[in-house]
């Protein structure tokens, strides 16, 4: 199945009058690769996932898998016919069935003994063989998540859809399960889509990220590229902090209080926005060049410290320094811009 594609084209999902929940979204998933759908809550991520699974009908657009139309103008393949494994946000384990029976639920071919054996294997692969006879309420949150994953993977689906699969778990467990889950997904060689609102999570698990806001997919690409070359301020903010400076292009360069950078393919006089990641603000105490700024606040943030800085024009920006740096509130510093972390977009 490697190389098979799930293609979503201009999908529209709407529930009531007003703005559609998903507005002409396009997305493609490849077998063996994990895609993260990242966006704030209410941005339509889950609705898009449910539409791919066939749990919602498309108002317009198509969902096609390996050349076959799943959803279209006149077509709506029922969810049970799509071979989509879904891990729901609250796991949706059947409370009346044991962990093993939950995993065996979707297995339909072969003798009952064979199905149970397969389910047992699946359960073992998520390291829960010893919990086969437990009911969902007897499992911890992390165990429930793993049963849900095993259940969705058991019928060997072509596409795996995971709706905020780690949101109910505490931080440490989340990191652990994230790794195990991505491993299992890559091993299964399915086309996987993970819905999340956590940028860090999306970057950690995905080969490709699709950014979604207000029902619209604003940008798709590899995590690093998205971080460094967002197409808009919205896209940039979905992945992390960013400073935005509105300016005009002069002689092919866009200037900011921290310095100028090249603005290729922009006309002189055009109004643009310079987006700058905190890592792109370089602090230099010794140099006489660069913009003068005063540190107004220092906040610890693990291995680094977050600084709030006031520029001479009154504008506040924030930057990060290693926790070992001794800069403190009240210090005067010089700032300059690192072009690698800056990008020029249309204002």
């Amino acid at each position: 199945m490697k190389g098979d594609l799930l293609e979503v084209c201009d999908a529209v999902v709407s529930f009531a009058e007003g703005r559609p929940a998903v507005d002409r979204a396009s997305l493609s998933l490849t077998c063996g690769r994990v895609t993260a759908l990242l966006g704030p809550s209410g941005s339509g991520k889950s609705s898009l996932l449910r539409a791919i699974a066939g749990l919602e009908r498309l108002e317009a657009g198509t969902v096609r898998f390996a050349g076959k139309t799943w959803s279209g103008d006149t077509v709506h393949l029922d969810p049970e016919a799509r071979r989509c494994g879904v891990v729901f946000q609250d796991y949706a384990l059947f409370p009346h069935l044991t962990a093993l029976d939950n995993v065996a639920f979707g297995l339909r071919s072969g003798s009952s003994a064979k199905r149970r054996e397969l389910a047992r294997d699946r359960l073992a692969s998520v390291e829960l063989a010893h919990k086969a006879k437990s009911y969902p309420h007897e499992l911890s949150g992390g165990e429930q998540q793993r049963v849900a994953l095993a259940r969705a993977l058991a019928p060997s689906p072509d596409v795996m859809l995971l709706d905020e699969p780690f949101s109910g778990l505490d931080r440490r467990l989340r990191a652990e399960l994230r790794e195990a889950t991505t491993h299992a997904l890559r091993e299964a060689e399915t086309a996987a889509l993970i819905v999340t609102h956590d940028a860090e999570e999306a970057m950690a698990v995905a080969d490709q990220i699709a950014l979604m806001n207000k029902g619209v997919i604003v940008q798709t690409g590899a995590p690093d590229r998205l971080y460094l070359s967002p197409v808009s301020e919205t896209a940039a903010r979905l992945l992390g902090d960013v400073e935005a400076f509105i300016t005009r292009v002069e002689s092919g360069r866009a200037s900011t209080p921290l310095g100028a950078l090249a603005a290729p393919r922009r006309d002189d006089g055009e109004q643009v926005k310079v987006l700058l990641r905190p890592e792109g603000i370089v602090i230099d105490r010794a140099s006489a060049d660069g913009a003068l700024a005063q540190v107004t606040m220092r906040q610890a943030a693990g291995g680094s410290a977050r600084l709030s800085l006031r520029l001479e024009n009154g504008r506040e920006v924030s930057a990060r320094v290693p926790v070992t740096d001794t800069i403190r509130a009240g210090d005067a510093v010089r700032l300059r811009l690192d072009e690698r972390f800056a990008v020029v977009v249309t204002a």
Binding site: P95, H96, F105, G106
Partner: peptide, 28 residues
């Protein structure tokens, strides 16, 4: 939770089978 019924659907059950195997036992 509608997700249990939906889960049954994505695991290959038609509407009636999903009612019988997921929704009904939970409401029993």
């Amino acid at each position: 939770s509608s997700e249990a019924y939906d889960a049954a659907r994505t695991l290959g059950c038609g509407p009636i089978e999903a009612f019988q195997r997921a929704a009904l036992p939970m409401a029993r």
